Amino acid sequence: MQAIPSNHMQEEGLVVKTMGGLAQVETTQQEACKSCGAQGMCHAMGGDKRRVITAVNQVGAREGDRVVMAMPRKGVLGASFLVYMVPVAALLVGAALGRKWGEAWGLEPQTSAVVLGAAALVAAWMILRKVSKRLAGRKELTVTVVRILRKEQGDALESSTACL
């Protein structure tokens, strides 16, 4: 059994599909997520506590296996910064510039702040899409299946030690 380094976050899940050397693992938001400042954002779009994570299947897990996944904390923190802080910063900077330059464009400062803030937010999302494609193969951002626990008998997912 492979030991998980202390600088890695870990989470349990259920393998729902395998594709070559990858596994799609269904997880449930856990107790560890309650202490996370962004706990609601993981599921803001769907509101569901379940999510599917694609992970490198280095232990040969199969569909129905209960597994432990690991990811370096540094990668989680860096990805979290990109996903949460960059769009917010772009929105704020865009709104501030729009407010400042609004009159020069013949617009109300509030209107130009909304327009430029929204444009900066959209631009940040587009840039993040390109950056995420470049970062996709980096080792510090790779989620890996590190251990098979057992074959799942029921539908409920058990609690885990950390939120990915």
Rank of each mutant, 00 (worst) to 15 (best):
residue 119 A to G: 13
residue 75 G to E: 07
residue 75 G to N: 12
residue 111 T to E: 10
residue 13 G to K: 04
residue 39 Q to P: 00
residue 20 G to C: 07
residue 140 E to D: 15
residue 146 V to T: 14
residue 25 V to C: 04
residue 67 V to D: 03
residue 142 T to F: 03
residue 56 V to W: 08
residue 116 L to S: 09
residue 121 L to V: 01
residue 55 A to Q: 07
residue 35 S to Y: 00
residue 78 G to L: 11
residue 154 G to E: 02
residue 109 P to L: 00
residue 84 Y to M: 14
residue 135 L to K: 05
residue 119 A to M: 11
residue 5 P to L: 04
residue 126 M to E: 07
residue 15 V to W: 02
residue 4 I to K: 05
residue 115 V to W: 02
residue 98 G to L: 01
residue 145 V to M: 08
residue 86 V to C: 04
residue 47 G to E: 02
residue 46 G to Y: 00
residue 55 A to P: 05
residue 125 W to Y: 15
residue 27 T to S: 03
residue 5 P to Y: 09
residue 105 W to F: 15
residue 63 E to R: 13
residue 103 E to Q: 14
residue 138 R to F: 10
residue 32 A to Q: 03
residue 134 R to V: 03
residue 105 W to D: 05
residue 87 P to G: 06
residue 120 A to C: 14
residue 110 Q to W: 09
residue 42 C to H: 14
residue 86 V to F: 10
residue 143 V to Y: 01
residue 137 G to V: 11
residue 12 E to Q: 14
residue 55 A to W: 05
residue 114 V to H: 05
residue 66 R to A: 09
residue 5 P to A: 09
residue 78 G to K: 05
residue 1 M to F: 09
residue 8 H to G: 05
residue 43 H to Y: 00
residue 53 I to W: 03
residue 53 I to V: 15
residue 159 S to Y: 01
residue 50 R to G: 00
residue 25 V to G: 05
residue 13 G to P: 03
residue 120 A to R: 00
residue 24 Q to W: 08
residue 124 A to E: 01
residue 21 G to I: 09
residue 93 V to Y: 04
residue 16 V to N: 04
residue 1 M to S: 12
residue 86 V to T: 04
residue 164 L to T: 06
residue 84 Y to G: 09
residue 135 L to G: 06
residue 150 R to T: 02
residue 17 K to N: 12
residue 74 K to C: 08
residue 117 G to L: 03
residue 133 K to P: 00
residue 91 L to T: 15
residue 33 C to R: 05
residue 72 P to Y: 01
residue 77 L to V: 15
residue 22 L to N: 13
residue 136 A to F: 02
residue 83 V to L: 09
residue 133 K to G: 09
residue 27 T to C: 13
residue 107 L to N: 10
residue 105 W to P: 01
residue 66 R to M: 13
residue 42 C to M: 07
residue 150 R to M: 02
residue 80 S to D: 03
residue 1 M to Q: 06
residue 17 K to F: 03
residue 79 A to Y: 01
residue 146 V to E: 08
residue 103 E to P: 07
residue 141 L to Y: 15
residue 164 L to A: 07
residue 4 I to P: 01
residue 93 V to C: 08
residue 87 P to Y: 09
residue 130 K to R: 13
residue 51 R to N: 10
residue 77 L to D: 14
residue 158 E to P: 13
residue 108 E to T: 11
residue 59 V to S: 07
residue 151 K to Y: 00
residue 26 E to N: 02
residue 16 V to G: 05
residue 125 W to T: 00
residue 72 P to E: 12
residue 6 S to I: 06
residue 39 Q to R: 15
residue 163 C to F: 01
residue 48 D to H: 11
residue 107 L to Y: 13
residue 19 M to I: 10
residue 164 L to V: 14
residue 13 G to L: 07
residue 68 V to R: 04
residue 70 A to Q: 04
residue 34 K to H: 06
residue 89 A to G: 06
residue 161 T to A: 14
residue 15 V to P: 06
residue 33 C to A: 15
residue 18 T to N: 06
residue 126 M to Y: 03
residue 132 S to T: 14
residue 93 V to P: 03
residue 89 A to L: 15
residue 104 A to N: 11
residue 81 F to D: 09
